[in-house]
Design a protein around this nucleic acid. Sequence first.
DNA 1: TATCCGTGGTA
DNA 2: TTACCAAGGAT
Length: 340
Amino acid sequence: MFKRTKFNDTLLNWYQANKRQLPWRETSDPFKIWLSEVMLQQTQVITVIPYFEKFITKYKDLDALANADEEALLKDWEGLGYYNRIRNFHHAVKEVQEKYDSKVPSKPEEFFSLKGVGPYIGGAVQSIAFNNQLAAVDGNVLRVMTRLNRDNRDTTKVSVQKDIKNFIESDMPLEAGDFNQALMELGATICTPRTPKCVVCPVREHCEAFKKGEVMNYPVKKKAKKKAEYYYNVFFILNDKNEVLLFKQEGDLLKGMYELPRFDVDTSLESIEEKYGLSLSQPSDAIGEHKHVFTHKIWFMEGYVVRTTDQHENFISLDKVRDLPMSVAMQKMFKMIDGL
DNA sequence: TATCCGTGGTA
DNA sequence: TTACCAAGGAT
């Protein structure tokens, strides 16, 4: 273990002199700080910035977002991924509106009970917005701490993350929010995964891995599973008014987003006709193909055009399609029929 | 606890 | 190309 007191001071001083100007650092509004942390979950700063600006412009305060329609929020979130984040945030914000008079709870136990608030977001918001003495342990912090301590435990384990959180909180500086952000900032800009800039690291004298020349050995984590591959035919089912058949996605993946009919490649046209109660023309030749990579799976999609003269309540004019929340996978499919 | 959730960037 | 990673949480 390294000497925490001196380390804390050195890191805080480095942070004050080197911190990046980020939009969410220009506000003290707990609602906006919370929103930024939800967006930043598993998402890079550079990606989040334009979405954060759009949201705080469109939703000025907690009530504005609480009163918004879920579909409008999903549309604004479109392209950011992990769509349950905004659905959970919407749910949580409505709970704050009802139970806490639209004021973000400054009591950790109340805040942690809200949907989508886990150890990281809870610690981050409570420390940054209310200066509660809690750690915010993200991937940056895990990397920094395991290098400092030559901690070779598997950081994908929640138990290890929890232990590191406790270690940080055992000697938390008074400026808890700044300290959490300092640890993350160090990880994001100096103590990076592939090419850490140890030569300019303000705390390298405290770093056991640096002293041993083993920085690249940390963090230790279990290898990711290979992605499962799925092969689909995706259908543009068009009626005589040139409207397209579209459905709101159910299940876990992309829940709430709209999608074209998507079937395993060996699905017969007859079973599709039966499912929708439509009489369909023979599919066109494939109009394009697209590979889409998710965290745990890969979709290989091939697009086809099919015609029908039958009625169905899910036909939507192509003009209105762009107003619906749509995953990037489906956006790429729709580019195949531009000009059709 | 292990697995599932999006998307874009990098070496 | 492949694998990894990014201010993680729910189940």
